[in-house]
Design a protein around this nucleic acid. Structure first.
Length: 557
RNA sequence: UGACCCAUGGUGUAAUGGUAACACUACUGAUUUUGGUUCAGUCAUUUAUGGUUCGAAUCCAUAUGGGUCAACCA
C-alpha cells in the first residue's frame, strides 16, 4: 500500500490568511477571538456562522475563544437571553475559554473615560439628542461644534462625576469624544461615549446610571481580554477608525478589528428586531418555534449541530453581499440525518388494504433500522390482513411509469410481501374505501423465492396495530426569497401555510421514541419528537422532506 | 450626488501575475425492497472599457451595478 495520499486542497478564507501571516511573522504566538452577543434576543443562523468562525479559528490555530456578552444597554437586555445563548453555543458543540461580560468592565471603562477627559479628548455635552443630530451635519456637509465642546478639563471631570452620581436626568447630558465635527467619517464627529440611563442592569443592578456606548465598550473589552482578532460584520467597517482611535488614545492593548459579510438566507429573515416582532406579534409560537431560523427553533425542528456546522463550513466567509440558498441547509441536514436516523413507517392519508388470501396471525417482520448503518440492527413490524397504505400510492388509472399500486398491478410492501390489487371498493360518492389485494406468500422479504420483480416499494402499517400520532409539517416562513428586500413590510410576505398539522398512523415501534431521536419516516422525510408530546399523544415535527423525484416528474407532466 | 466596502456559473466559495475550480441546485443515465441513498455524466462562470505585462479573474484607471454611513442601539 504505497498509495499516494492526495493532499486535500485547502482554501483559506481571508481571515485565515491574515492569521497565518500573523502567526508566521511572529506577531502572535497564539490568537484570541471572541463571540460577543448582546443578550437581547435569541441566537440565529447568522450567529451560528459567526460562532463557527470564531470558535473554528481557535480550533484550527493555537489560541482560544471567549464568550463575551455585550451588555451595555440595560433597557433591552435580560438574563433569559444570556441563558439561551449559552445553551445554544454549547448545543452547537463549542466551548468558550472564559464567560465574560462587558459589564464586568464598567469600572475600568469609567476610568478610561476619565483618562480621555484628562487628555482633553472628551467632554460633557448638555445638548439634547435632537440638537446633536442637527449639528452632526450630513455625509456631504460638515457638522458644527457644540457650544459645550470647550469646557475645561476640570469642569468636564466634575460634570462626568455628577453624571455617574445620578445628578442628572436621562438624556440631559452625554460624554462625547472630542475628535472632529468635520470628519469625513460621521462616526468620528464627536461620537457619544457615555449616556445617562437610570435603568436596572441584569448584572450590575442599580450600581450605574451611566452606560458606555458600543464604541466605548466593545473595542476596550477586546483590548482588556487581549483579543488579537476581533471579527465582526461589514456594517462595522466605519467603526474601525473609531475603534483604533480609542485604543491609541487610551494607549491600551491593540486588538484589531476585521469585518466579514453577514450571511443572508433566502426565504427567511435574520434580524433580531424582525424575529422579535414575529414572536411578539404572535406570527410564530415563540423563539423556538420550529419555523424560526433561531438555533433553538432549528434544534426543535430536528436539525443537528453537525448539520448546522457543516452548513456554516460550506458557505464559508467572505466580504461580499450574499444570499445563501436555504436548500443548502436542507441538503446538509438530509446528509447527516440519512446517516443517523432510524427508519420508521408512518402512513399519513390512509386507504385500507384487505389482503383477501392472508390467514396469518401475529406475524412479526424484521426491518432494518438504518440501511446506511447495519450496526443499528432491526425492529419488528407486525403484519396483518388489514393494512393502511398512503392514498396517493394508489391510482385507479395510473400514468405510465407509475410504479405504485393500481388495479392488476403489483408492488412490494417494504420488508413484507408483494401484493397485487384485485378490486377497488368505493362508497356512494365514488370515493375509494378499500382495496382488495392478494399477497404472494413466497415473496416474503429476505426470503423471496417468487421470482417476481416489482418496481415499486410502499410503506405501510397494520391497521389494528397502528399508533395515531400528530405530525407538524413545516414550510418556509416566507413566500418570497428576500422578505426584507421588497416593498412594504416583511410581514406582508409571511407564508400563511407554513404550518400544517396532520394525523399519521405509525408502526408500533414509534412508541419508544425519545426527544433526542431522529427518524426517517420512509419515503416521506425526517422527523423528530416534539416536546409537546404526552404519554398518550406523540407529536412529531417534520425536519425536512426527502427529495422527491416522482413529485418533480408529476409536476413536469 | 461625500466617504468607505464589494463585484467569479442560478447560489455560495476558491484560484494570491502562469490551463478558471469545488460544493449545492438543475438536467441525463445506472443501481436500489425508500421515486431516498449511492454512482457516472451534462449544462453553466470572471460587470464593462481601457492600460501595464510574454501572460491579468488577479495589478492600475475609468465607468457601471450593489451595499454601508447622519441611534443617547449593538
Amino acid at each position: 500500500m504505497t498509495e499516494e495520499i492526495k493532499k486535500e486542497e485547502v482554501h483559506l478564507n481571508f481571515l485565515e490568511e491574515i492569521i497565518e501571516a500573523d502567526l508566521q511573522s511572529g506577531k502572535y504566538k497564539s490568537i484570541v477571538t471572541r463571540f460577543p452577543p448582546e443578550p437581547n434576543g435569541y441566537l440565529h443562523l447568522g450567529h451560528a456562522s459567526s460562532i463557527c468562525l470564531n470558535f473554528g479559528l481557535t480550533q484550527k490555530y493555537p489560541g482560544n475563544t471567549n464568550l463575551r456578552f455585550d451588555d451595555t444597554n440595560p433597557v433591552t437586555e435580560d438574563t433569559e437571553y444570556v441563558e439561551s445563548i449559552k445553551d445554544d453555543i454549547r448545543w452547537l458543540g463549542f466551548t468558550w475559554k472564559h464567560e465574560l461580560y462587558a459589564s464586568d468592565y464598567f469600572d475600568t471603562l469609567y476610568e478610561y473615560a476619565i483618562d480621555l477627559i484628562k487628555k482633553g479628548l472628551a467632554y460633557v455635552d448638555d445638548s439634547t439628542s435632537e440638537e446633536m443630530a442637527m449639528m452632526k451635519g450630513t455625509p456631504t456637509e460638515a457638522g458644527r461644534n457644540s457650544k459645550y465642546r470647550d469646557r475645561t478639563i476640570d469642569e468636564n471631570l466634575e460634570l462626568f462625576r455628577k453624571m455617574k452620581d445620578g445628578a442628572f436626568e436621562d438624556g440631559t447630558r452625554t460624554l462625547r469624544a472630542k475628535i472632529d465635527m468635520a470628519h469625513i467619517n460621521m462616526l468620528m464627529r464627536d461620537p457619544v461615549l457615555y449616556r445617562i440611563k437610570h435603568a436596572h442592569h441584569h448584572r450590575t443592578g442599580d450600581k450605574w446610571c451611566i452606560y458606555p456606548m458600543y464604541d466605548m465598550a466593545h473595542g476596550q473589552s477586546d483590548s482588556i481580554e487581549n483579543i488579537t482578532h476581533s471579527i465582526c460584520t461589514l456594517e462595522f467597517v466605519p467603526h474601525r477608525e473609531l475603534y483604533d482611535w480609542l485604543i491609541e488614545k487610551l494607549n491600551i492593548y491593540p486588538s484589531q478589528q476585521y469585518e466579514f459579510a453577514r450571511r443572508n438566507i433566502n426565504y427567511t429573515v435574520t434580524s433580531k428586531r424582525k424575529l422579535l416582532q414575529l414572536v411578539n406579534e404572535g406570527h410564530v409560537a415563540g423563539w423556538d418555534d420550529p419555523r424560526m431560523p433561531t438555533i433553538s427553533g432549528l434544534r426543535r425542528r430536528g436539525y443537528t449541530p453537525e448539520s448546522i456546522r457543516e452548513f456554516c463550513n460550506r458557505i464559508g466567509i467572505a466580504k461580499r453581499e450574499n444570499i445563501v440558498d436555504v436548500g443548502l441547509l436542507e441538503f446538509c441536514v438530509r446528509e447527516h440525518l440519512n446517516r443517523i436516523a432510524f427508519r420508521r413507517m408512518v402512513v399519513f392519508d390512509p386507504v385500507k388494504i384487505i389482503i383477501t388470501n392472508y390467514t396469518g396471525f401475529g406475524e412479526l417482520l424484521a426491518s432494518e433500522n438504518n440501511p446506511e448503518d447495519q450496526s443499528t440492527g432491526s425492529r419488528g413490524i407486525p403484519f396483518g390482513k388489514e393494512l393502511f397504505i398512503e392514498r396517493d400510492d394508489f391510482m385507479e388509472d395510473p400514468p405510465k411509469k407509475y410504479f405504485r399500486l393500481a388495479p392488476g398491478q403489483m408492488v412490494r410492501l417494504k420488508s413484507a410481501y408483494i401484493i397485487k390489487c384485485d378490486e377497488v371498493i368505493k362508497d356512494v360518492n365514488g370515493d375509494i374505501t378499500e382495496l382488495h389485494c392478494t399477497y404472494i406468500p413466497e415473496s416474503k422479504s429476505g426470503n423471496d423465492t417468487s421470482g417476481i420483480n416489482v418496481k415499486g416499494t410502499l410503506h405501510w402499517v397494520t391497521a389494528a396495530k397502528a399508533v395515531e400520532v400528530e405530525v407538524r409539517e413545516y414550510d418556509r416562513l416566507f413566500k418570497v426569497e428576500n422578505p426584507s428586500g421588497g416593498e412594504g413590510d416583511f410581514k406582508d410576505y409571511i407564508n400563511p401555510y407554513s404550518l400544517k398539522i396532520v394525523k399519521g398512523f405509525a408502526e408500533p415501534a414509534i412508541m419508544d421514541a425519545k426527544l433526542s431521536d431522529r427518524f426517517q419516516f420512509m419515503r416521506k422525510g425526517y422527523y423528530c419528537l416534539d416536546k409537546d408530546s404526552t404519554d398518550t399523544k406523540l407529536v412529531f415535527n417534520r425536519t425536512v422532506t426527502l427529495k422527491d423525484a416522482w413529485a418533480k416528474e408529476v409536476k413536469k407532466g
